[in-house]
Amino acid sequence: MDAVVIHENLKARFGDRIGSLTVDNPDPFIVVDRSALKEIGTFLKDEPGYEFDFLENLTGLDLGDKFVSVYHLLSYKHRHSLVLRVELSKDQPTAPSVSEVWPAANWHEREQYDLLGITYTGHPDLRRIMLPEDWVGHPLRKDYEQPKGYHGISHERANVLDGFKALDDRDHPLPVVAPSKPEADGEQ
């Protein structure tokens, strides 16, 4: 089913909790209200004709002024796909968890929580997944500052080029024209 048709049908059913549809994009996407996300997800998953049974991907985005949670859905039966977006506030990015609708969301949400700091309410086990539990900050945020080290292990390494620069900066530099060079012929 086409994204335009799905958008119209959703609009008719859920009213203004369905936001705009953007078709001017490689993958058209529909913005939905976060309070209705779970309801819409359940509808899209179970309703005959849609049956988006496979949550392909769940991504968080840091757009600077707001966070976005993106859901890529696919239906094995009807071979169509759909992209949903939920817009979240910059200060408190919180979205409802869809892990009850699609169990596959469980780890994806944990990963977005870990790397972007988006909180998924209602998630059964929301804790860090990739990084250690005592890690500070969320690395994929645009304002993230990389720490200097972790438990005494430095994150910085000397630049190997500095070694070569040091050779150039010595008090007695190497002779620029070596006697064996062709252009030195006849002079020395």
């Binding site: 994009n25 490689p26 993958d27 996407f29 392909e56 991907n57 991504t59 985005l61 993106v70 890529h72 992209v83």
Partner: peptide
């Protein structure tokens, strides 16, 4: 600016999707 795309391939371990913004 602002466009995003999701591409999928059938990898040896199943669908491998890449999302770009």
């Amino acid at each position: 600016a602002g466009t995003d795309a999701f591409a999928r391939t059938e990898s040896a371990r199943g669908e491998l999707g890449c999302y770009l913004l």
